[in-house]
Write a protein that binds this DNA or RNA. Structure first.
Length: 430
RNA sequence: GUGGCCAUAGCUCAGUUGGUUAGAGCGCCAGUUUGUGGCACUGGAGGUCGUGGGUUCGAGACCCAUUGGCCACCCCA
């Protein structure tokens, strides 16, 4: 996504017409004035004009001037796809998808207006095996990337159960959103926020055992068994979590490679469509937002006309993962430079000979390049030095026209320079 | 969406209560080395101080507006 004025005027009139222009988000009507005399624009801005927002509420105008929107995530468009193609898909249906999504947020560190998500989903099955498999995927991927992570696990049904048990079933969202901030702002502030949202003192009192809950995943679940014993929904949630954990406990021979799977009853997640399991991935010991999230949604395709198809999926936040990897210095130096050999360009016939050699070497799988201009040799060497190219090749008339064609090869790090037959290059450069 | 901070050379920044020709480091270019990099030394180019207005004898500095960026909250990947 670019600013509009970056793009306009560069592609001609036709191009300007074909550029998607994005309406400002927020109160974009706030300061827009229109003329009451449609024939002529007003001379002074204030005279004979009226605030557009006084004539038309934004909610009324938006549908008239705006019908397209940028993807907010990959899950909802996927649900639409599933609903549209229900007759062609074999259920349970799995897919992965890697694409950019957009949020009309103010960008800042770790927070982008446009970023890439990597999604994997399964629809058409309620089995907790899927949850277990997705947790494996998280573990495999972050182990491969060498990022230590905690996978936080919770269940919306448990959160619903909590709201029920404390007598505030209608304030589920307010309660969970506040609870989610427990580790950030502390218990007092959480209670304060709940009160402000209209949660009763009595309900907050009932909530208090949750604030001090500690222990292993199973100890927490044991506590919930009694705490939520009067909520059918809550008990269902506990059973689901137990089932997910059981797939790991019953398979001790294949433990998670490095991820820690932690039950976190304060995990809420903002997306409304989740109905069961919710997951969030955080880099361990690094204060940074989540780098992955997901959960179960039992009726997302329902809004597109295909009810009764449960699904579950996860997402990787590619840009944040990249940020973390830079912070942890996970990118190996040797990946930064790819070219093994830079051929010096002497111009004229020397250039043609070097270009031809470069093509031959590439055919042999040697990554090499010819400096594109016959500028000063010094400059070409500096270029190789800066790019970290280990070898420089000099293919002048004197060496290449020998009876057995030769090339001068300089190893920059050692400064050693030798004359070699060109057919030896592929072994020298390994 | 709410609040705070910032904008000066390609980059990172300095610039005193408003006062001559706006500086530094790095980078860039050239030379010491006309086919040899790193290191060093010498010299050079490069800025309408984000934009528009105002205050003033005088504005990079003060005031207003505007645009862009950063950060926190909210929320989230």
């Amino acid at each position: 996504m670019e600013n509009l004025d970056t793009l306009t005027g560069k592609y001609g009139d036709e191009g300007d017409r074909l550029i998607f222009k994005i309406l400002n988000s927020g109160e974009y009507l706030k300061d827009i004035r229109i003329s009451l005399n449609a024939e002529k624009p007003p001379v002074k801005p204030e005279s004979n004009t009226v605030l557009l927002s006084e004539l038309l509420h934004e909610k009324m105008l938006s549908p008239l001037i705006c019908e397209k929107a940028l993807r907010y995530d990959l899950t909802v468009p996927f649900a639409r796809f599933v609903a549209m193609n229900r007759d062609k898909l074999a259920f349970p249906f799995k897919r992965y998808q890697i694409q950019p999504v957009w949020r009309a947020d103010r960008p800042q560190k770790g927070r982008y207006r446009e970023f890439w998500q990597c999604d994997a989903d399964v629809v058409g099955t309620s089995s907790m095996i899927n949850e277990a498999e997705f947790i494996r995927i998280y573990d495999d991927v972050f182990a491969a990337l060498r990022i230590p992570v905690n996978i936080l696990l919770n269940n919306r049904k448990i959160l619903s159960g909590i709201a029920e048990v404390i007598g505030e079933p209608d304030r589920l969202t307010d309660i969970t959103v506040a609870l989610d901030k427990l580790d950030k702002i502390g218990r007092d502030k959480v209670e304060e926020e709940m009160l402000a949202k209209g949660v009763s003192h009595q309900a907050i009192e009932l909530l208090s055992p949750l604030f001090s809950i500690k222990g292993t995943n199973n100890e927490q679940l044991d506590f919930l068994d009694t705490y939520l014993s009067t909520s059918e929904t809550g008990k269902l949630g506990i059973a689901e979590i137990r089932q997910v954990l059981a797939y790991f406990e019953a398979n001790q021979a294949k433990p998670l490679k490095q991820a820690k799977l932690q039950l976190d009853l304060t995990l809420a997640r903002g997306l409304n469509y989740y109905t069961g399991t919710i997951l969030e991935v955080k880099a361990r010991d690094i204060p940074f937002g989540s780098i992955g999230g997901g959960g179960r949604y039992d009726n997302l395709t329902g809004i597109f006309g295909l009810p009764g198809v449960p699904g579950v999926g996860i997402s990787f936040g590619a840009d944040r993962i990249y940020d973390i990897m830079e912070q942890l210095k996970c990118f190996p130096e040797e990946l930064l430079g790819t070219t093994r050999l830079l051929m010096i360009n002497f111009g004229g016939n020397d250039e043609l000979a070097a270009l031809s050699l470069v093509h031959d070497l590439r055919a042999q799988g040697i990554s090499c390049e010819l400096y594109p201009e016959a500028v000063k040799i010094r400059k070409q060497f500096e270029f190789a030095e800066k790019k970290g190219i280990p070898y420089v090749g000099l293919f002048g008339e004197d060496v290449r026209n020998r009876e057995k064609p030769m090339i001068e090869l300089k190893h920059l790090q050692s400064g050693e320079q030798t004359i070699n037959p060109i057919q030896d290059l592929h072994t020298l450069l390994l």
